[in-house]
Nucleic acid binder design. Structure first.
Lengths: 203, 203
DNA sequence: GAATAAGATTAACATTGTTAAGTAAATGAT
DNA sequence: ATCATTTACTTAACAATGTTAATCTTATTC
């Protein structure tokens, strides 16, 4: 009676295959430049098959981003688990975030830079276990550690974390969007921004 | 023999009328949600007429944004001309930038948050007299004044300005995109970010 | 008044996301 | 084993999009 399970397995397999094809195309050419028909061609199914597994194109993208940001959370986890000076660790986390964004510009753009589609479930989106929120919680935790260790003054941690997020999101998104701007060197800008933010918070 | 001039005037008039219609629709509903046909309907011309005055939809948007950011430059000019303590003036400028972005979210998004279309004239885009670059130059000038007045340590002004831009762009774009995020108060976040950035630079 | 040029329109194309209807095969029930 | 049903998928089509080519209309020029 493993019939149902085999079917479920097959379904899951195709779903993942669609997801992989979509990921590759989205990453390479960007969401807007990839049509449902192109994705379908890639996996050699008809376009409408995708709609059996995903509600629509936006849903497909959402799932792609979910996968990507699970990887970010993992990356940040590893950094935050490491022992050592908490301010340095926080800085490493901030830089890791920025680098991740630059390595996955399309996913970063769609998750953090695109308008949240109307009729979207905001509750769900900002739930504590969503990848975005998990990533954000590294900031508050990192800051709290710094304060506890006496390396930073006491402050409104939530507010400070939001400012940190604004800062690192700012560099990331600008570097992604304005690739041809005469930057004073990508690495330089990244490190100077992180240093400035942390110095500003340390007070 | 004022015929040619009258014609030119009429052409200019219709061009502006298209621009105004497009602006209103873009601002109200966002670039992607406005079709060329809708714009044409609004001014009671056929859709193809727009193509006589503008290369394509992207060009139309570009002109709309140009107009908007001329206004930003004006706003920043006024602030920077005012006398007073240079650090406070710089802060006021930063906050004005953020507020302008929040007041014109669609234009801000399309100018600073959207991928620069391929085959775009980067030379032209990052020319010194483009509105974006003019706005940016307020940062370097503001910083230089602070250093000259001995209120800030000597530093790589270009690099510091880019970090400032990253910071204020970060808050602006995040507040635009993630309206439902549990912010610790918009005003609070804005001011705390500006204060943190400036404090970090002052050193 | 005829020729010419400019301005605006009609019709159409290719492409998009998406849905409704239909088909074929695997599964379940009798 | 046969019939009915569910499942997986496809074909065909729709409505909307940006954009172009061809055409018509109107105004200017000679």
């Amino acid at each position: 009676m493993g019939v149902k399970e085999r079917r479920a397995r097959q379904k899951k397999y195709l779903r993942q295959e669609i997801l992989d094809a979509a990921t590759e195309l989205f990453v390479r050419e960007g969401y807007e430049n990839v049509s449902m028909r192109r994705i379908a061609d890639k996996i050699e199914y008809s376009p409408t098959t995708i709609y059996i597994y995903f509600k629509d194109k936006a849903d497909l993208l959402e799932q792609v981003c979910k996968e990507t940001f699970a990887r970010l959370v993992q990356k940040l986890s590893k950094i935050m688990e490491q022992p050592g000076e908490p301010v340095e660790r926080l800085k490493r986390g901030l830089i890791a975030y920025i680098e991740f964004g630059l390595e996955n510009p399309h996913q970063y753009r769609t998750t953090f830079m695109m308008p949240i589609p109307e009729g979207f479930d905001h509750e769900k989106y900002h739930q504590a276990d969503s990848p975005g929120m998990q990533a954000f919680s590294f900031l508050t935790r990192g800051l709290t550690e710094c304060i506890k260790a006496g390396k930073m003054r006491a402050m409104n941690v939530e507010l400070a974390a939001q400012t940190l997020w604004a800062g690192i999101h700012g560099v990331t998104s600008l570097l992604i969007t304005h690739t041809t701007f005469p930057w004073a060197g990508r690495e330089k800008v990244i490190h100077f921004t992180v240093d400035t933010l942390v110095a500003g918070l340390a007070g």
